[in-house]
Design a protein around this nucleic acid. Structure first.
Lengths: 152, 152
DNA sequence: GCAAAATGGTTTCATTTTAAAACCAAGCTG
DNA sequence: CAGCTTGGTTTTAAAATGAAACCATTTTGC
């Protein structure tokens, strides 16, 4: 009996993350939430996602504690979906994806939406991966240290 | 006729990125490549992915210029898959996913693989999102500025 | 030098996921 | 109170995925 696709038990944190938010829509929903979208129909309209899929993903994301469903603060019958702190912690993931896309997926003169510092209106600075001592790191000077199974 | 799922033309860079690497396996393959994996069978064994799917993803990733298929430098008949510079630029994405997973998806005492600075052996520092002036930014002080359609 | 095993896939077929559209109940609106 | 909006669920069709079988080369073991 082979477990199919669940990396829940994987000891690689990126694999586990992808297990939770690695499907095609989840991060797009989270991105909309970062952009202030709160209601079912708004997600649906902005993303063009099928409603059953959206309902499913909202359930999963709330189940994972990334979104929280709260009753309409204005007393209406519907509920709002809001990012939890865990969801807000996905900001670097969204930013990393965005910056990679800006760099590699747009023509030099092609317009795209921008993520800006709301205080100054300037673009967010490029993310960089640094060592504890502040040295800039690239793919060549990092390695993955696997957990020894016996430790698990 | 409704175009299904292609965000190729979307003006949001994160959407476009997800269109390219947002499927379930692509980033896992890239992560393996970061870890030095180069050959078909190694990807297959490490990830437990079906071979037809792996072949498809390797084709897509090379087609996108994220991986490059090069003939075995030792003269063998097989080819190796290597990250291109575009692929190596995905490091911050992988790191962001990994750090989010470490923080939110593991029990406090649970072991996991680590991404370390190969010089010192110390963990990579937490990524942070900063403004141009160096201020630390969180979800509350960034906004997305949409491109005006007329500009496009 | 030859048989056997490994490599790097492709094909086939069953299962699962996704998409689109229709449907529906509850609220609100004029 | 008739009709529209919101927030879904159900149904059905289409597409993606997964497992296994198959296959042509290579490499290896002896």
């Amino acid at each position: 009996m082979v477990r199919k696709k669940s990396l829940k038990g994987d000891y690689c944190p990126s694999a586990r993350s992808l297990d939770v938010i690695g499907d095609w829509w989840s991060l797009l929903i989270v991105r909309e939430a970062f952009d202030g979208v709160k209601r079912f129909s708004a997600f649906q309209k902005n993303l063009g996602i099928a409603r059953n899929i959206l309902a499913d993903r909202l359930r999963k994301l709330t189940g994972e504690g990334i979104l929280q469903a709260v009753p309409d603060p204005k007393g209406g019958a519907h509920q709002e979906y809001r990012l939890t702190p865990k969801g807000r912690d996905l900001l670097p993931v969204i930013v990393a994806l965005r910056q990679w896309g800006e760099k590699h997926l747009f023509a030099p003169d092609e317009p795209h939406s921008r993520l800006v510092d709301s205080l100054t209106g300037l673009d967010v600075a490029p993310l960089d991966v640094r060592a504890q001592d502040g040295r800039l790191l690239s793919a060549d000077n990092v390695i993955i240290v696997k957990v020894r199974e016996e430790d698990a």
